[in-house]
Design a protein around this nucleic acid. Structure first.
Lengths: 212, 212
DNA sequence: ACCTGAACACCGTTCAAGT
DNA sequence: ACCTGAACACCGTTCAAGT
């Protein structure tokens, strides 16, 4: 007969998921520099060294935080929408996740995650390209292009300005003209216009000649 | 009468440029984690604290390393080539710089550099878009799209695999089919195909209707 | 102005020990 | 199996002092 764990006032048991989620919250509050094993342990009501029972080192813990971000990406199920709509939803939800966790997003771009969840996500994206009728080589190229755009755009949005530093160079006339169109309240539109260029090009490819 | 400095066997004087260049070399060898003020000072034949006379803190030093990478980007002069060719050369040279300094490239994407050199680069890129006849708003969008692609692609190329970690998820059939097309020796072609999509779309926009 | 040297308040990680 | 506590070899940065 399995013992039912006694109801306790103590914090719930340490798990990889709970550690990663708490680490993400800590990064949201204090930045990547603010995450230390000691502070994280303290937040979890435990000594720093207890974390090493669940992760071999800090890098792997950071990978788990990146994996938790990937878990926020939404790729609609195969039957629910056309492939292009599924892919567009994925890219938008990925950006939304990055904007929710600006300080943590670098964890996704600076390390090649090969967790089961990331691999599954890749598989589903490639499936969508295949559903469009693309060959594997073409799928690989479009995956790379869409991924580069999405991660590059999100990264540019969340990158903090240099804190202080030398007196900023005085902007030239072209920059002064373009700057209003790159203000925070314009970035939705800027992102959408980039997305449109890519998806229009992909759609054109689908009805165009098989080899260009 | 100005004193001519005595010819000395000692290391040349500390300057921001020499410190940043040495820091870049150190990052190339030992990664971002391998760069510490003490190790860098030692490499320069100086105590760590001497560096603080040239940079207020480590973050600003890292900005200077990022700036040194931007200095490697080549944008041909205005008269030498058509605007599209100039921009293509810039994107290619930026990727080449990233591949030469894979461990340092994250410094360019994770911080918004507003050094004089970066601002000047932005200005020259916007000038090229203007030379194509684009309005400031359109220039801002294409700048964002090209920048996102270039930095996102380069970042994906230089990102290291997760070091050890959990047993990698077994790849699915779509991934197995696509993987050969994403091997290192294929990435030149993958990059060029993405570049082609973007530049074709931009060229089409130039001869197409002004508002879509 | 430029650099040193000691000190402070931290790090990630090891190890042996507890339960 | 899971966690503690002390210890080790580092960090970035401060401060007062040297020249």
């Amino acid at each position: 007969m399995k013992r039912i764990p006694a109801p306790s006032r103590a914090r719930p048991a340490l798990t990889r998921e709970r550690i990663a989620a708490t680490a993400l919250a800590l990064i949201d509050e204090a930045g990547l520099d603010g995450l230390s094993m000691r502070v994280l342990g303290n937040r979890l009501g435990v000594e720093a060294m207890a974390l090493y029972h669940h992760f071999p080192d800090k890098h792997q813990l950071l990978d788990a935080v990146g994996d938790a971000l990937v878990a926020q990406w939404e790729l609609p199920a195969r039957g629910t929408r056309p492939p292009l709509a599924r892919l567009r939803h994925l890219v938008r939800s990925g950006r939304a996740s990055a904007l929710r966790h600006p300080q943590a997003f670098a964890l996704v771009t600076s390390r090649r995650l090969n967790t089961p969840r990331s691999m599954e996500m890749l598989e589903r994206v490639l499936e969508a390209f295949a559903d469009l009728g693309l060959e594997p080589g073409e799928s690989a190229r479009w995956l790379s292009l869409m991924g580069a755009f999405a991660s590059g755009h999100a990264m540019a949005e969340v990158a903090p300005g240099s804190p202080g530093g030398q007196p900023d160079a005085l902007p030239g006339p072209y920059w002064q003209a373009a700057a209003p169109h790159l203000q925070p309240d314009q970035l939705d539109a800027v992102f959408e216009s980039g997305l449109e260029v890519l998806f229009d090009a992909l759609a054109a490819r689908l009805i165009g000649p098989p080899t260009r």
